[in-house]
């Protein structure tokens, strides 16, 4: 049996006066696509920040998070910096704010590329980095790489920005990719493209995926197994197909029913 890439055991996150996440446990195997479902405020984004060791200082974590065999909770910042990028990378919800507005896109991708090449002891000269940046842009299927490398974030479309953000995350060659509501800020057509892109890339590159969303339909397309969260607790977990078609919990059932009604309304059926 293969050991899990990410194991979360009894994770509790609390501020001095409020418990935000309580007793959360789940695990992701290498190459597995895992969906985390919940409405806003359910603690799903906090969970992803905890996995990368980026919680605000006011939030106290308890329990255990092991990523690639290393404990995250209580680890010194120096080890976390090395682990981020190497083991895990994140794509955020809003690509406009997740990119530095004053830095050309090419240079933003070049940063993690250079760090990765150095870490692996490979040649990290300008030519090698530029070649790598170009191949990453091709990997996320961005047209006109020459123009994009010199563009600033505000000069390209939302979908293109999110592709650049994905390229930045993949530049690290992580073993786990966290996608935190990566399609919420995009229009429906672009959403579908980004979801397809992420799914095919993680499959192609053999990366595990932690996909966070409130959108059941999107999660259903992406994930093999899912977990439903509410108010910081796990409600239901299991294979995506089972949870999303034959939910056992009443909350999940209401979510599924609401999503179905929404779809039917869109299609104009009774």
């Amino acid at each position: 049996m293969m050991s899990d890439l990410l194991t979360v055991r009894g994770l509790t996150l609390a501020t001095p006066d409020k418990v935000l996440v309580e007793g959360l446990s789940f695990s992701i195997a290498p190459g597995e696509r895992f969906g985390l479902i919940g409405e806003s405020g359910s603690g799903k984004s906090l969970t992803s920040l905890a996995v990368t060791g980026l919680l605000a200082p006011s939030i106290r974590p308890a329990g255990s998070i092991t990523l690639a065999g290393k404990e995250i909770i209580g680890a010194p910042e120096k080890r976390l910096v090395r682990m981020r990028g190497d083991a895990v990378a994140t794509v955020f919800q809003e690509p406009l704010t997740a990119l530095d507005p004053l830095m050309p896109l090419g240079r933003q991708i070049a940063g993690p590329v250079r760090r990765r090449l150095k870490r692996k002891g490979q040649e990290a000269g300008r030519v090698a980095v530029a070649r790598e940046v170009r191949s990453l842009l091709e990997l996320v299927r961005l047209p006109e790489p020459e123009r994009l490398i010199r563009s600033y974030p505000h000069e390209v479309s939302g979908g293109q920005r999110q592709r650049v953000a994905i390229a930045m995350a993949l530049a690290c060659q992580p073993r786990l990719l966290i996608a935190d509501e990566p399609t919420t800020a995009l229009d429906v057509t672009t959403q579908a493209e980004i979801v397809r892109l992420i799914t095919s890339l993680v499959e192609e590159l053999g990366i595990a995926l932690l996909f966070i969303s409130h959108d059941l339909a999107v999660v259903g397309q992406v994930a093999e197994s899912v977990m439903v969260m509410r108010d910081g607790r796990m409600i239901e977990t299991g294979p995506a197909e089972q949870v999303l078609t034959r939910p056992e919990d009443s909350y999940t059932r209401s979510l599924v029913a609401a999503a179905r009604r929404f779809d039917e309304a869109l299609e104009g059926q009774p």
Binding site: T52, L54, V81, R82, M83, R84, G85, D86, V88, A89, T90, F92, E94, T97, A98, L99, D100, P101, G111, P112, R115, A165, M168, A169, A171, C172
Partner: peptide
Amino acid sequence: GQDYITAARVSGTS
């Protein structure tokens, strides 16, 4: 406070 700082930290920038 901007997201791109979090993004930079997540990708392992010192």
